[in-house]
Nucleic acid binder design. Sequence first.
DNA 1: CACCACTTGGTGACAATGTCACCGACGCGC
DNA 2: GCGCGTCGGTGACATTGTCACCAAGTGGTG
Lengths: 223, 223
Amino acid sequence: MTNPDEWVERFPGLSRLEGPIKGLLLDRSSIISAPEGMSIFGPGNSPENMLFLLDGTVRVQQVSETGHEIVLYRIHAGQSCVLTTACLLAFEDYSAEGITETPVRAAAVPRAVFDDLIAQSKSFRDFVFAAFSKRITDLFLMIDEVAFQRLDVRLAHKLIELSANQNVIITTHQKLSVELGTAREVISRQLQEFQRRGWIVQSRGRVALIDRPHLEQLADHNA
Amino acid sequence: MTNPDEWVERFPGLSRLEGPIKGLLLDRSSIISAPEGMSIFGPGNSPENMLFLLDGTVRVQQVSETGHEIVLYRIHAGQSCVLTTACLLAFEDYSAEGITETPVRAAAVPRAVFDDLIAQSKSFRDFVFAAFSKRITDLFLMIDEVAFQRLDVRLAHKLIELSANQNVIITTHQKLSVELGTAREVISRQLQEFQRRGWIVQSRGRVALIDRPHLEQLADHNA
DNA sequence: CACCACTTGGTGACAATGTCACCGACGCGC
DNA sequence: GCGCGTCGGTGACATTGTCACCAAGTGGTG
């Protein structure tokens, strides 16, 4: 029941669950996999199950009526898609979409089991509400950024976030513009400016971070 | 237990609750009031209770580190502050604030009772999750608007929303700029343009809608 | 009433960002 | 090689944000 090999133990928020609850979760869930670049939920594709991500990341993005795209957030290993799933169930016609950014493994929990868990376990309730709360406060922050933050600051921030200990980012100007909800030309100009200052070096489909301290200083500017 | 005078009956999402659950909710909650213009939650002011709004509206807005403000959403009679409260409890240091826009009456439910209700009633769970989901999808839409929608379209939309069957809106350019997360000067210019077109008439602290059809047409443009 | 402080709104110059049309360079399959 | 799609660059222009400043209204006070 508390076998340390089970996936539940690797979830920071779930390892503290009561023993029988863990058993229920393990018995009634199944492990699924998906390759990179696959849409796991989106318009006309509501999943039947609540997903708990074991490995990989899922990018959640949105396409507006004007044709513009923007990345809303990412779901990483150890987090759940519960809120996005819940939104899909509640409002069939919303436009967000979840796409695997890497090969992904996840535990799928049927809705009925999910509801049982909520009813029976305070720890599980706390986990779910914490996830909702975190997501909502993150969305508040994102609104603030999109509305008020300068683009050079946001871009520097995003470069550092995407680099994740590497000094080279494999991406295109187009993809970066979707990350920030702006136009490709704007990204091109900003990256040119960063390169002129000697902070980065660009090549086709690639950005190399040369002067991380300066980028971080700009990124922290009023953030 | 199902007395039609009780406040629960006036909540679209709660009137279908099981009888004993209604009783618990009624017995363990208390009715509170607040005057207009009061901050009912915000930084350094976490409420002890979950609130269910009986009368009035609460405006939730945010102040960024740059000093800019933006209105995130409103809570109307028949809705709950649950998610905002949950966020406050989970993340003490977030910057959103709830302000009464009218005199307000609300039912206050202690956290422990709230947790009991979640555990015991599927209907109550559905109510709470629907509220969370609606809020999150609304925030998605807001991000889309802030990032991609033209300001004239957003302003026309906001004027119609704020007018609510009246043809006169009592507000200032400053307040409108906070609604849309932009600058006062920008609002002034747009309203001048609307007035030049004969759609509105401005006076100090007041906007009169003259040509609602044209405003609506602009507001629906790509939305 | 005069005086003062504050709010509200107007204005022009300029910066930052978004939009559009177009171009050349690169990579890939044939 | 050739064609074709992706990637990035560029200039002109529109929209929006920022800043400094001003003028008119509003309300309080002596």
